[in-house]
Design a binder for these strands. Sequence first.
DNA 1: GACGCTAGGGTCTGAGCACT
DNA 2: AGTGCTCAGACCCTAGCGTC
Length: 690
Amino acid sequence: MGLAAGSASAVGVLLSDHPSEAGACCRQVCFQGAHASRWLSSVACWRLSSSRWLFRVSSSTRSVRCPVSRASSCCPSWRFREHRRTPPDAAVAPWAAQQPPYLAPHQFSLLPLPELLRWEVLYGLQQVDPWLRIFEPAQVRRMVRDLAETGTLIDGIRDQQMCPRSTVAVLRMLGRVRTAVRAGHAEYTGTAPAQDDVLDLRALGQRSRTPAGIRQPKTVDLRTIRQPWLRGLLRTWTVQQRPGADEFARTLRGVELASRALAQRPGTDDPAGLRYDDVTAVVDAIRTALKRDGEPAGWNYRMSIASHFFALIDYGHRSGAADDLSAAFVRDPALHRIPEQEANEDEIGKAIPEPVIRQLDAHLHLLGLGRARGQRTLAPDDLQLMYRTLYILLRDTGQRPLEVLSLPRDCLETRNDQISLIWNNHKARRHRRRLPITTSTAQAIRTWQERREQLQASLPPTGADYLFPALTHLATRPYLHTSYLGETLRDWVDSIPHLHGEGTDTQGNPLPFDRSLIYAYAFRHSYAQRHADAGTPLDVLRELMDHKSVSTTQRYYTVSLKRKRDAVTKLAAHVVDHHGHPSPSSETAYELRSVAVPYGGCTEPSNVKAAGSSCPIRFQCAGCGFYRPDPSYLPAIEQHINELRADRETAQAMDAAEFVITAFTAQITAYEQVTDRMQRRLAALPVAER
DNA sequence: GACGCTAGGGTCTGAGCACT
DNA sequence: AGTGCTCAGACCCTAGCGTC
């Protein structure tokens, strides 16, 4: 339990009407900041009586010396001694029940509450402790004030009705405490959650917040799952396995989809009657699942939903939680697959085009202004310098945002005049990697490093080892959070007045670039695309990006349709017929009227109509009038000629029939003529176009 | 190469901390 | 008590890698 007002240690005081020793009218426990929960844990032993349930303070709860000076008129001990001056034999209990407790800003008292409510609140606060980052005694004091007229928290009325004058923050605290108390009471009496159709996820240990709009503690109404057996299985699994929030959400999504699909089929309310076809129906529903906004969900997500749903079914079979479940209701790995869709041909990848990056560079002076994150810790100039350095690193190194943010404070290394960036590959768990960088990139880092050294005294010590340290003591990681970078980049990009993309409108004006395509990770794609366009060998780029497999590197950049068209346009102008006569055509006409055959295209109509599978002369292309050899295949054709020569020699050695040798010779001659003509035409071209 | 799993990133949004 | 800022959860997605 953290404490507000940044106090390093504090004292929680529970005033009791049963003082344990003479002269001490308050039972109190000292605790250091975050360890209050240990104290509360020791108080958590409670029992149920016939008419009410209450907590019992454990004997391990220590009574310690009052930290308030006894000379102080605020100290209850001192006040009690003063009280006894008039009736020397006055009892402590009646007196203490009427006394306002002494409270420092970091303390609260439950004394004003009736006894049952006092123990309920205490238990609730103990349970609520792990759900909070910082515990605010002031909120508890307000809650206690507003609860004074209440008898018990276990009541059907809403929080607002219980404390109509409370502020939003107090009602939030009250809601948490009531959730915890209700869950504890229900668990003790054995009424929930094993039988409830409304699951309280927080009471089940999930520390989760809710999607937009829902402010109440998160509950899930299982009554939307129409099949009682499926509802029961999900409830049992949740209660017994206590899944995390994400695991539960995916499983629930799978169950919802399955329930909807099964509801369309007769007899699926009886788990024993389920068949193989029912599994197929469930898989079909997941295979075509949509996101909540109506768009098709991604393949990996749908796969994950299916995986979680069938893990639940397996749990039912395995654990006996679904004893009646038909043995036929299992996934068939061979047939119940969720295939990955083909990538869209027109998709041009996620790289930010270089002209757009140049426009971003031109507006670098705006980065870190406006709503930049971290204004409370850093001066405007320092903030700008930090974000500028982050941008340069993203742009020049192609590293993932988290890798840039978590760079070590001393991340530069110079060997043989080559400067390298030392970084950690979190994703592949390979650390202390080295990436060669340019002098200008290194200079940008050094400039920030020098300024960062001067700032260290004003920064939280947890981030001392990092180049971009956490800026507040609340941060859960020692380095800057990814959302800082993402949100500041978003605000910067939105603040740039004009950002032109590629192409123009009908009036010739440049088209605006879609700003949503600019985000931190997109610079990694740009880095890969930049290297690919510059001709960096794939294996070198793989090393630079620290990928294990080349296929991963290839996924980062794509050959855009435009680049393909450029290539087709250039080559289409040099297509020749089999006599070597130029046979130029528009790229579209050529694509429409031809079909790919070995080493070029075929324009024979019946073969084109059959998509290349119906050659009337059995693919004797070199001698065909419809053959359009493609200059890009020149090296391959020459290799093919060599193979034909080798085959002819083999045939001669085998003393093959004369027509076999003649056929090889004719093919070789035909392909030689094709290459000869193409080479002559290419030689006549300007050097730049070859 | 298809499939499936795990770890973790991008983005949106609300909770709640910190400051006034 | 009001308000702006910070951070973490939800949801969906990508990357990396192992298995078949």
